[in-house]
Design a protein around this nucleic acid. Structure first.
Lengths: 335, 335
DNA sequence: TTGTAGGCGTTATCAG
DNA sequence: CTGATAACGCCTACAA
């Protein structure tokens, strides 16, 4: 392995000078600097990250703690984080499938000394209290977590507005028997969407039917199953709001199998607006969520917290959504 | 920051003893060991990764270099890698959007001293020659790369068999005018699937019509567009093989818009068997690819290369696929 | 069974 | 502008 000493020897200077060249530290004569730089590249010299972090106590790396996550949401979040990371020269350590407090804590422990900060995504609603006292080893940004109003930086989706918009859209099309397929039981996003659904129904003076709340878990399969259950209920709902697109697509396939027309017999709406939403049959009305931006924003917050170090006021961001009207709930103008 | 010295002082032993406890190094009296362990956890002591790597020259971290990648394929690969990584106590540094040689090389340089080995995923066909002489800083496993028969460890999908199976399935249903929507132009998988399609047609003594080869790029949108183009051709194809499911779904939506029945008027088949394939209308006949296993396998190979160090014979793995018959090409038995 | 001490590759401080 | 040199936190012979 080629070290800073090799470069120094070859360039007939001290290691200190080489170090200065690479860190923009002190003043170095232009010619010396160039010579060192040339020799370094010729020797394919790369500073040893560990040694550097030992003395600077910074790693230029940030950790990302994720729950079990499948599909588009996961990859988009990572993509957003990566975009912001590479823009600022940070590396990314990612660690998957963390659910409860102990797993998160052990993961954070394992990351000590490897990262300068951490982005935690833990949408489990029960993690709220658990994460209340996170180790303050390094700055933390909470991504789509259940904790609200704390002293942490956080980024969340504005689920309430989005779900309300969907329900209002359905109501404006004359629907009164509106069912919901809920998300995974203890998931924040699913929970918030459910609450907003209820509240929107109340606002529209629609009496709520508890049996219209079918349980799902964000998968196509669960959406399929839930829709089948919903079809048994009398009076049968005339609209189904699935808490995410995957379940909406599962529901669509269940309705098709049952010979039910969409949107004529039953309207269907989703949430997230994943890419495929516009290509299913019929194209799915949904709520667009800027997923990549979620990750990008989280990373940006972390970076700025890292820069400011002490003087940094945590803020809670709420990312807006957009109603995307296609044809699974009938034409836009109709009411 | 609490260091090994703090633990040593608190436990009235030398740092050497503490180190031994944590590395299973030399012999330590049972009682001493327990005391040190207790104090360490009480103090929340975690060895500094950088300092350790400085002397052991190992990092317990592996790097993952990926191209721009969207959707399910990406997340599944990562998931597979992560499963194998956590099983063996390795951390994961991931780095996105690397296409050409220079980007890969600079990324690898940036990882020097941070990782013990690297998994490179670079499905660009042109990268073949470019990557021929990778820096041999650390062990490398090629994941879905175009390089074949080299001295590198590699894991690839058996695209040829899969594509051939699809075409034969179509032929067995009486189709002779079989079109293909190709993948991204320089993508290995897309390329191999195209070649296998041609070869399967030849085997079936079907004359090839170059205009039946529509260009796609693995996105739903490109599949949609390609299908529309295909519909203009006379004689019109009676079957469309899309090089992946996303494009097949895009094609499905184009056919629906054109009022073409599937599979009655035109049969459609995909590749990958992503989760959603069974929920689209009609359920998509496809080739199942064990994506997560791809990542898991790559990681396993890297680990074993890391263990053996010198004595390790690189091997090229080809992951098998399975034909999944649903209804987008007509019933299974029919011919 | 335990302690001492040298060194891993860098950066930072202080003299020149 | 440049060069010694002392840390940084840890592991590992070598001694005791």
């Amino acid at each position: 392995m080629v070290t800073i000493r090799d470069v120094a020897r070859e360039a007939h200077v001290s290691v200190a000078t080489v170090s200065r060249v690479f860190n923009g530290g002190g003043p170095v004569r232009e010619e010396t600097s160039r010579r060192i730089r040339d020799i370094a590249t010729a020797l394919r010299y790369v500073p040893h990250a560990g040694a550097r972090s030992l003395i600077t106590s910074r790693t230029s790396t940030i950790g990302v703690l994720l729950p079990d996550l499948y599909g588009e949401f996961f990859s988009e979040v990572i993509r957003g984080i990566d975009i912001a990371a590479r823009r600022t020269g940070y590396h990314l350590i990612i660690s998957n499938s963390h659910h409860d407090k102990s797993e998160i804590e052990s993961a954070m422990r394992a990351m000590r000394g490897r990262v300068d900060g951490v982005i935690i995504m833990s949408p489990d609603i029960d993690a709220q209290a658990l994460m209340a006292n996170l180790p303050d080893a390094h700055p933390v940004v909470l991504l789509n977590c259940a904790i609200r109003g704390t002293a942490f930086d956080s980024v969340n989706i504005d689920n309430a507005r989005g779900a309300r918009a969907i329900v209002q859209h359905l109501v404006s099309h004359g629907h009164r028997r509106i069912a919901i397929i809920t998300g995974a039981p203890r998931n924040v996003d699913g929970h918030e969407r459910l609450l907003a659904y209820r509240s929107a129904l109340r606002s529209a003076s629609i009496e709520q039917n508890p049996s219209y709340e079918a349980h799902g878990s964000f998968t196509e399969e669960s959406g399929h199953e839930a829709a089948r259950l919903l079809l048994e209920i009398r009076p049968r709902p005339t609209a189904i709001f699935a808490a995410n697109d995957s379940m909406a697509i599962g529901a669509l396939s269940a309705l098709r199998e049952a010979g039910i027309g969409v949107p004529d017999d039953i309207a269907v709406a989703g949430f997230d607006d994943i890419t495929i939403a516009r290509y299913v049959n019929p194209p799915l009305t949904s709520v667009h969520v800027p997923i990549a931006e979620l990750g990008e924003r989280a990373m940006a917050k972390l970076i700025s917290a890292l820069r400011d170090k002490d003087r940094h006021a945590p803020r809670q961001d709420l990312l807006g959504t957009t109603l995307v009207i296609r044809s699974s709930c009938g034409p836009p103008g109709h009411s």
